[in-house]
């Protein structure tokens, strides 16, 4: 824009507006289609954002969101000073990081194995079966875990007893609860997470393998020098995105698995928010903690996305 001609740009501006209006009108059917979805996001995703202001108020159900008195950062401070703050943060991070660290290697291994095997039937069978747990509700997985791990009748404890060892109360022991959480997630999701890596492997040019074979490279060397480099991009992307959502340690899973004896190792931010908000009726406090988590999550995922764009050339969005 040129400040020397203050009156001149007007027609041009008006013209572009007119152009825009015409374009909008031409697409009116499309906007109409968009309307229900847009309303959905406004009502179920943006209205809650407005309600989130109760984090800064002392919410009283009878007074409503707008009528409750302001209290500033009181709820945030209460959470930061609370006895359970550090424990929650540690549990959330430990479980999350362990899930990433122990979840990705088996998925890569599985993808490579599926890619390398020459037995078609085995490959098909493993793919079909290993995706299955992904589609089971955590409630069902909890049932399976009970069957495996229950101290009275569980399969693993029967095995331990047969070996003359003491049974272990896996789901109620502070020593074993986190491993159970992490490993059950690995059991449930490995097959599914392998898909992405498998896709990356399949997109590698087969000529590379052929050339390597002619050069006398062993299968293992081919994996090491062709397959693994071929999935590095996907790996970086997956890791960064998981780091972006590192405060989500798996609410639904822990919600069904945990119990009083393992609160100290199993309680994560989300379960705490649920208990404070829905069980103890501390709506404002719970909202404040949820908001705290949301903001950190936003920052992390934006940073992760930046990094992904820089190192891999593609991000989540």
């Amino acid at each position: 824009m040129n400040p020397a001609y203050p009156s001149k740009p007007a027609p041009q501006w008006r013209q572009s507006l007119k152009h825009l209006a015409r374009s909008v009108w031409r697409h009116r059917v499309l906007y109409l289609m968009l309307l229900p979805g847009l309303l959905y996001f406004l009502i179920f995703r943006y209205w809650p954002l407005w309600n989130a202001q109760i984090a800064f108020r002392d919410f009283q159900p009878t007074l409503g969101v707008w009528g409750s008195p302001w209290v500033g950062l009181q709820h945030f401070l209460e959470f930061f000073n609370s006895y359970y703050f550090s424990q929650l943060l540690v549990n959330t991070l430990v479980i999350s990081v362990a899930k990433i660290a122990l979840g990705i290697p088996p998925a890569i291994l599985l993808a490579i194995a599926l890619h390398e095997t020459s037995r078609r039937f085995l490959s098909r069978a493993v793919q079909t079966m290993s995706y299955l747990p992904h589609f089971l509700s955590w409630v069902i997985v909890y049932g399976i875990l009970l069957a495996m791990l229950s101290p009275s009748e569980g399969l693993i404890n029967s095995g331990l007893r047969a070996l003359g060892l003491e049974p272990v109360p896996f789901l109620t022991s502070t020593a074993t609860f986190q491993p159970v959480v992490v490993l059950s997630e690995v059991w449930k999701e490995t097959g599914w997470s392998a898909i992405l890596f498998l896709a990356a492997l399949l997109s590698i040019n087969p000529a590379l393998y052929e050339a390597a074979a002619i050069d006398g490279a062993s299968r293992w060397q081919q994996v090491r020098h062709i397959s693994l480099p071929g999935i590095v991009d996907v790996l970086v992307l997956v890791v960064l995105l998981k780091i972006g959502s590192i405060l989500d340690a798996g609410f639904h899973q822990i919600f069904v698995l945990y119990s009083l004896p393992v609160y100290s190792v199993g309680d994560i931010i989300d379960t705490w928010v649920y208990r404070q908000g829905i069980q103890n009726f501390q709506f404002s406090l719970a909202t404040a903690v949820g908001l705290f988590k949301g903001v950190i999550g936003l920052v992390l995922i934006v940073v992760a996305n930046r990094l992904a764009r820089r190192f891999v050339g593609t991000g989540l969005y």
Binding site: P48, G290, G297
Partner: peptide, 28 residues
């Protein structure tokens, strides 16, 4: 070519990145 498409996609994407949490949604 839809005018405002980028803005709307951004609007939707934001809800993916930032969640107001359990209680505010419950209140809605």
């Amino acid at each position: 070519e839809l005018p405002g498409r980028g803005f709307i996609v951004g609007l939707i994407l934001f809800t993916f990145l930032f969640n107001a949490g359990l209680i505010p949604t419950f209140l809605v």
